[in-house]
């Protein structure tokens, strides 16, 4: 079952008075429960593609369907609600709200989307923190946590509203190798549990059990024939 479908999607930007094409006629399909890697050089269009899939950005051409929904028909607020419900986003620099504790960060996501009943939120947040292995850090502020712990917290927050899709932009790019490995293990577990996981990465993907590898070059999908390390 297809969960993400892109048909001839293009995206151009105006920069310095000139038009710059970030993505050109990209078409792809991702099925439910797939573990997908999005690879390519800097400026190849990876982040742009991710932003289009999550509804953070709008395409200048083509059509995108995510979870049977034409997301670009939504207004800004409806899109935010839809995104909060269907897609969990993990950023490279964790991007936790610094003034909230770890558990409050998760509860905030639940409060925004309001799909988890209020009386279940605390327990769910604790379960998620247990799942990512940082329950003991629940009441600490992000600044008190290590990078790896912050990224685990960010994953827990991304899972707060039981999304079908999890997208992560360079989730281990800022972590040491041991921590990165443990984070990748969480993603593998999530895929095993049926979540569709899309990861943008620069890292060597050899030995990683991706179902699909999408390689971008100059805004277009290329056949994947090399490891990520060769592309840098």
């Amino acid at each position: 079952m297809n969960i993400i479908q892109l048909n001839n999607v293009s995206k151009s930007f105006e920069q310095g008075g000139q038009s710059f094409t970030a993505l050109s006629n990209v078409s792809l399909t991702i099925t439910k429960g797939e573990y997908v890697a999005l690879i390519g050089k800097s400026g190849s269009g990876k982040s742009t593609l991710l932003n289009l899939i999550t509804g953070i950005d709008h395409p200048t051409g083509g059509h995108i369907t995510v979870a049977d929904t034409d997301i670009h028909k939504f207004g800004e607020s409806s899109l935010a609600a839809w995104r909060g419900k269907n897609i969990g986003i993990i950023f490279q620099f964790f991007q936790l709200i610094p003034t909230l504790t770890i558990i409050e960060n998760i509860l905030l996501a639940m409060e925004f989307v309001n799909v988890i009943p209020k009386d279940q939120r605390q327990n769910r947040a604790k379960n998620l923190l247990t799942q990512v292995g940082i329950l003991e850090q629940a009441n600490k502020f992000p600044s008190a946590l290590s990078g790896g712990e912050q990224q685990r917290a960010a994953i827990a927050r991304a899972l707060a509203n039981k999304p079908e899709i999890l997208v992560a932009d360079e989730p281990t790019g800022n972590l040491d190798s041991a921590t990165a490995k443990s984070i990748k293990a969480i993603f593998t577990d999530l895929v095993a549990a049926g979540t569709t996981v899309i990861i943008v990465t620069h890292e060597d993907i050899s030995g990683t059990d991706f179902d699909q590898i999408i390689q971008l070059k100059d805004g277009q999908i290329q056949p994947h024939n090399s490891t990520v390390s060769e592309m840098k």
Binding site: T54, S77, I89, A109, F112, N161
Partner: peptide
């Protein structure tokens, strides 16, 4: 501003 972006990314509506 970035925090606003994050909150919107995780589901915050304009009203929030």
């Amino acid at each position: 501003t970035r925090q606003i972006g994050i909150m919107k990314a995780i589901g915050a509506k304009r009203g929030h």
